[in-house]
Design a protein around this nucleic acid. Structure first.
Lengths: 117, 117
DNA sequence: GTGATACTGAAGCTGATGCTTAACCATGCA
DNA sequence: TGCATGGTTAAGCATCAGCTTCAGTATCAC
C-alpha cells in the first residue's frame, strides 16, 4: 500500500498536464529523456525537472546506460492512485445503494429518513 | 468523456491533501460547508476556496437550502479520472504482454527484439 | 584529442496557490 | 427586533511550481 506521503506525491505529479503527457507517452513504451523532451515546448532542464518529480513520486523509474537515461512507467504506483479514487467512488455508490434500499423499505413501512447529510 | 481541460482541473483538484480529505469525507455522505471545515486546521474561507475549486473541477456539487450549503461527491467525474489512469496502466501492461509473447516466439524461432525504447 | 550528443546542476524570475484577516449578507429563532 | 449561525466576498501576503539561461560533466564517434 502506498503511504500517505507517496500518494500525495503521485497525485501532485499527475496534476501537471506536461507530466501527464509524459506518462501517456511512456505508457506506449520506454523513452530516453531527450526523446521525451523533443515534442514538448520547453527546455531540456524543464523536462528533467518534471521527470525528477515523476521519479520521486514513484510513477516513473529510469536507468542510465552510457549517456542515455531511459524512463519507463511504474504501473504499481499508477494502480495505487487508481485504487484510491476507486475506493472513494465505490464507497459513495455503496452508500447510495444502502439509502436506496432504506427508502424502498420505508415505502413498505413508515418513519423518518435522516437522509445523507 | 471528460475533455482535456476538465480532466486537468480534476487532477489538479486532487493534488491537494486537504481537498482529497474533503473528497474522502464526502464519500461517506453529503456534508455542509462548516461541517466539512470543522476538523480542518484552517479558516472557513480557506475551506470554501478548496470547495470552490472542487466544484469547478466537477468532482463535487453543492446546493444551498436555507443558509446551509450541502456538498456531495460527483462520482462521474471521479470515475473519469480513474479511467484515465486505468487506460495508461492498461496500455503499458498490454505492451508488456505483447513483448512477452514476442520473446516467447523468438525462443522458438530467431531474430532481433528491438525491445521497448 | 576534438567535436557532437545526452544529460545534469545551479541560480533566478514570474505567476499561481494556499492561506490569512476583516468585513459583509442571509437565514433562523426568541 | 435583535442576536446567533452559516456562508460569502475581498484584499493581501508568503511560499511554491514551472520555467528560463548558463555553465558544466560524461559518453560516443571519428
Amino acid at each position: 500500500m502506498l503511504n500517505h506521503a507517496a500518494l500525495d506525491r503521485a497525485f501532485q505529479a499527475l496534476a501537471d498536464p506536461t507530466r501527464r503527457a509524459i506518462v501517456e507517452r511512456l505508457s506506449h513504451g520506454a523513452r530516453s529523456v531527450s526523446d521525451l523532451a523533443r515534442p514538448l515546448a520547453m527546455s531540456l532542464p524543464a523536462v528533467m525537472q518534471h521527470l525528477a518529480l515523476l521519479e520521486r513520486s514513484g510513477l516513473v523509474t529510469s536507468a542510465k546506460v552510457g549517456r542515455v537515461r531511459t524512463c519507463r512507467i511504474e504501473p504499481k504506483a499508477l494502480s495505487q492512485v487508481e485504487a484510491w479514487i476507486h475506493a472513494r467512488r465505490a464507497e459513495w455508490e455503496r452508500r447510495l445503494d444502502r439509502l436506496g434500499d432504506y427508502l424502498s423499505e420505508l415505502q413498505a413501512g413508515g418513519g423518518d429518513v435522516g437522509a445523507d447529510g
